[in-house]
Write a protein that binds this DNA or RNA. Structure first.
Lengths: 201, 201
DNA sequence: TATAAGTAAATGAATATTTACTTATCTTTA
DNA sequence: TAAAGATAAGTAAATATTCATTTACTTATA
């Protein structure tokens, strides 16, 4: 039996992400992908059932998985609240900064109905992903350090700004001066933390 | 001369937005749109140069324009800081809640390279749109009410969470209980404001 | 009646996927 | 040890469909 060439599998994923990042999800075609990866279209179908299967696996296995891992590196739910939030912010910034293609696909994940379906079918976002963060929030609510809002609400307040700031970072890459530095990021993080903390006074 | 049928023009825009919201930008085709709008494909080309022209005009004229108008209703840059921010949050929530298709297209605007190009070519986001908000931020920075961070940074901190909360609102529409109410929204807004305000104490 | 608005049908290019074939490599046999 | 067979990996080219856009024509109205 001929053995699977893992380089080709990797090339498919890498180049698919590149095309999506540079030309958009709507401009990724199987034939274009095959040509760019220097393989036959048929080869893609050996590894993936169809285009949807490819995109969903790309999204979940090649993007969301590594993303979660990077974001949670060195984080644990027992950390001090401010310290934990800062760790997540820094991890998010560092990872996305160095993986612009992943960031592009994550953004598509927010708008593409197909990728949304992938989220739903894989029970992602509610429970499976970022579980340590949920435990972290829960315990800090219990301790009275932060208010008792639903998790989703805390997520929006604490982590929506960092995504927006990363976006701004990429907008500024091609401009003379980068305004989104690690320093300004930490100032923002302090602002967000200051807002959410219950005054124990 | 035969007169233009404005209803057809409106149908094109309405149905295009519907398809994009329900099936995604990548699943909008000119023929599908024509069929759904009960017109000939040629009719679209009478009103728009090509598909890109249609999408960009849809995005800018039918979505971003009305969106900006709705968000700024009753707002002026001289307002009290907290009052102004709350007004924008409420306006955003009310508008997007009632215009889910517009919200879908706005989300696509964050990921689609074509719509990003539209932003750039029309000098949007930096200067033209939401100018009163920029003036508002500038004057509050000058007065020392909020820190002297770049506008983009303030935008991320103050307004990224509301977009995320609207997203959460729509996720919950099909579920038994809506967690994103106007009340919780105002609590969140208070949190965000509390964080950004300079302590004058 | 002049003319732009509109249509039905066609065009050629691009799309996802498949067919019919070739190739590499593991396992088995001599 | 080495040749042969089995088989999945891989390819080039084809398929049927859908795509954006156009052509050649009809219709409504100033």
């Amino acid at each position: 039996m001929r053995t699977k060439n893992l380089e080709k599998e990797k090339a498919i994923r890498t180049i698919a992400m590149q095309i999506i990042a540079e030309e958009g999800l709507e401009n990724l075609s199987m034939q274009k992908l095959a040509k760019a990866a220097n393989i036959s279209p048929r080869t893609i179908y050996i590894k993936y059932k169809d285009k949807e299967d490819l995109l969903i696996k790309l999204f979940i296995e090649a993007v969301l998985g590594p993303y979660e891992e990077a974001v949670l590196k060195g984080f644990n739910p027992e950390m001090d609240f401010a310290e934990g939030v800062k760790r997540i912010w820094l991890n998010t910034f560092c990872y996305l900064k160095n993986n612009p293609h992943a960031f592009a696909l994550i953004k598509h994940g927010k708008s593409s109905p197909m990728l949304q379906k992938a989220y739903r079918e894989n029970n992602i976002s509610e429970g499976d992903f970022f579980l340590p963060v949920q435990i972290f929030l829960k315990s800090n609510k219990k301790k009275g350090i932060i208010p008792n809002y639903p998790h989703e609400v805390h997520r929006a307040i604490l982590f929506a700004p960092i995504a927006e700031l990363v976006n701004e970072y990429f907008d500024n890459v091609s401009r003379p001066k980068q305004i989104i530095t690690e320093k300004i990021l930490m100032l923002c993080c302090d602002v967000v933390i200051k807002g959410i903390l219950n005054k124990i006074s």
